[in-house]
């Protein structure tokens, strides 16, 4: 009987000690913010365009954490949806067309001689990528522009264009080879095409 009591007592003691350690760790190593929201936010493209219906990427990240669908972000496109699906362990679904289509990467360009310097675009730009002052010509810092389209609408003289960023030799990437199944029925060596047979 005493052995049982001792055992119970020891276990009780242990559980109390570990409970205290865990409680202490919870306070001491408390993580600020919601880590899952951080992770989702890190995947979103940070274009801050609001096409998802939220005022920026972080609010959408919070919404996703609270159960909103993961296919509302057109700038991120399928790649972002895939990454989100992997992270949240849900199925990757196609992009919701209601929020817009996936487009090529673009930047805003101001036709500078037409700008009247109303500063409206500056107020709209979520990442401060537009430079200018009242009644002065404005311009876009292309490197900072996320291509969110938000400056287009407020411009009273319609002098902002979205221009696609073309591929340069530095940003070009190699294509993926077509793969072995590109020609059906080619699994056996004797099935080779006439052109290669000729060299036999």
């Amino acid at each position: 009987m005493t052995t049982i009591l001792i055992a119970v007592g020891i276990l009780l003691l242990l559980s109390l000690i570990f409970g205290a350690i865990l409680g202490f760790a919870n306070v001491r190593f408390h993580v600020e913010g919601d880590p899952i929201v951080e992770q989702i936010d890190a995947i979103l493209p940070q274009t801050q365009c609001g096409q998802c219906g939220h005022p920026g990427c972080r609010p959408y990240a919070e919404a996703i954490a609270n159960g909103e669908a993961i296919n509302h972000c057109p700038p991120g496109g399928q790649a972002t949806i895939q990454a989100l699906a992997d992270l949240l362990d849900v199925e990757a679904i196609p992009l919701d067309g209601d929020h817009g289509e996936e487009t090529a990467k673009r930047v805003a360009v101001i036709r500078e001689d037409e700008c009247i310097g109303c500063t409206k675009c500056i107020q709209a730009c979520p990442v401060d990528a537009i430079l200018g002052a009242a009644k002065q010509m404005h311009t876009v810092i292309a490197d900072e522009c996320t291509g969110c389209d938000l400056c287009i609408e407020p411009c009273p003289v319609d002098c902002i264009d979205m221009v696609e960023i073309g591929v340069t030799a530095k940003t070009w990437s190699w294509d993926k080879p077509v793969g072995p199944m590109s020609r059906p029925g080619n699994l056996i060596a004797t099935d080779r095409q006439p052109s290669t047979e000729a060299s036999h």
């Binding site: 936010d41 979103l44 493209p45 940070q46 274009t47 801050q48 920026g56 990427c57 979520p126 990442v127 401060d128 990528a129 900072e144 996320t146």
Partner: peptide, 13 residues
């Protein structure tokens, strides 16, 4: 890198 940069700028704004 670019999206991190945009995030920083957005938050600063």
């Amino acid at each position: 890198i670019k999206s991190d940069h945009a995030k920083i700028r957005f938050e600063a704004r």
